[in-house]
Design a protein around this nucleic acid. Sequence first.
DNA 1: ATGAAAGCGCTAACAA
DNA 2: TTGTTAGCGCTTTCAT
Lengths: 350, 350
Amino acid sequence: MSAPTVYDVAERSGVSIATVSRVYRTPESVRAQTRERVLEAARELGYVPSGNARGLASRTTGVLGLCFPDYADPDAEADAEADSDADDAVMLYSDQIIRGMERAARRHGYALLIAASLEGGPESLVAKVAGRVDGFAVLAQTVPTEDLEVISRRLPVVMLAGPREIDHLDHIVVANADGERELTRHLIEDHGLRRLVFVGGDTDSPDAEARFRGFREACRDAGLPVPDEPALRTTMMKQAEGALAAETLLDRGGERPEAMLFANDQMAVGALRALARRGVRVPQDMAVTGFDGIPLGRIVQPSLTTVRQPIRRLGEQAVELLVQRLSDTGREPVSLTLPVSVIRRTSCGC
Amino acid sequence: MSAPTVYDVAERSGVSIATVSRVYRTPESVRAQTRERVLEAARELGYVPSGNARGLASRTTGVLGLCFPDYADPDAEADAEADSDADDAVMLYSDQIIRGMERAARRHGYALLIAASLEGGPESLVAKVAGRVDGFAVLAQTVPTEDLEVISRRLPVVMLAGPREIDHLDHIVVANADGERELTRHLIEDHGLRRLVFVGGDTDSPDAEARFRGFREACRDAGLPVPDEPALRTTMMKQAEGALAAETLLDRGGERPEAMLFANDQMAVGALRALARRGVRVPQDMAVTGFDGIPLGRIVQPSLTTVRQPIRRLGEQAVELLVQRLSDTGREPVSLTLPVSVIRRTSCGC
DNA sequence: ATGAAAGCGCTAACAA
DNA sequence: TTGTTAGCGCTTTCAT
């Protein structure tokens, strides 16, 4: 009643289990006639090689993994529900990384195991992934550093879009500061704006911090006042928080800013809505920018000026690094920075 | 030098391997103090439980799988390259199914293993997936039926978006015929069009055939001539073929049609471009429709009227069926049909 | 080209 | 609560 094994197939086809094994690993090493007998028996019995047993015996799985955070902007989901036409527009960061990794993994003959989770410890999906792959990529802030510490001693791990955290890991980041600096420069020089405010994220978001750094650099370069801190910080960088931030900024006394730069697109989109509700015209009365390049940014009115991250590339590169390291265990840790590009749309005045 | 095992951890913490195992499976069943000792030892050694060994011993992996075809419309990719702004707009069918399955799998505590491939046989990625999961979903036309035949005798398989092929499989389809009939009815009744042509796909694409069926039903219902065959068939249903089809249809003698209905969005988008090149205005001179609801359809000019498939839902439902069947092996094969909805945009004249 | 035998690292009864 | 003991189904030398 249980699943057939090499033994069953071997018996039925009158060969040894070793031969059955060979048929599935190195078909050419078995005489054609024998091979046919074996495959025939396998077909009759409904034999499917156990990946687990293979992996256990050969100490390799042929699978690469990806752990990403359980981010699901509730507002974004709401969009998808309410306006079913916007459904597919909400393509998250992680979806694109998956795309990139899958393509690259396929090229190298690997399958891809994916799992989202925020919590660590034994029991976690992270642990499950780690135990079933030859190597994997992790989005920053996904897996507790202490777990990673242990895991990365046993198999290749590449950290994506965040600080390396552990110094023997490979990691890949995007040029956050460069992008925000360039974007800010554009607002200042090309649109002649001077009163800019930056809305950041939590201090422990390296991406958001790097973007703020870029903002400051541009201010400094232009001879504008350089703030020590973002005008406002949000914790989750979601749409609702962006909306709230925009309103707070409007209601705050003093001169109204000419431009609001958000640390990510989600917040900027939320802000766009809040500003519309308050009758503030974008970009005439206020320029608004985001960061990331999510598809939603192109669909909103006005379309969002932003900085595009090469997210798919991130996934592809991750696989390349993993594959490299798998074949050369001794290689020094690598650190890559992928370039970004400013996307000028309507919300900045272009 | 090799990876530490339960034995190493057991020895170091002065317990038996069974206890180490328990710490990772059912932490509460171990005295807190003992548990700490074990985890401490594990940390020091860099112990990561082997998923393979676990799976082998427990006969379960905690992983669900998805096999999808190696579809990558070269034209779509070209779009992504040429107009980097359209990059993320090109979100394929499979990406959305992955999204849906991942979400649902996560809810049930499963990770998701994904792999694309067109070829079967031993050695194939399909075989790899089959051997490493508790059950998996297959997009129609992805895995050779004979492989599926064997595999599905050993673990749950659900067929997506296509005929069941093997009668003991669960399967999920979308209401292709209903959608195309409704769309066609819209063109006829609401826009008063009468000379409609349908561009289909290969005869062995069940989706395309079902859509053609819907088209015919609407023609019949409206008292229009009912064609036996699509005006044209393409093999891969890609953009280039759609463009070619549109031109062929234009150059063909006789009265020019008032509307071209394509079996999918990719072809329709290609047609839109070809028509623009030829100076045919859409929708004034010619109505054009697609099927699928890909994001690109909203971005093209004019925006594409189409039928949206609930693709994410497809993925979610697939997981539900797999999970069900995993807990109730005896259940009768299920066949679900998910409803679709007509999306009226500009290309039909709306 | 094929076979024999020894693990691979874990879980799952069953004992204690 | 913890330990003992069999396997789980394959790959891998080493022979033949």
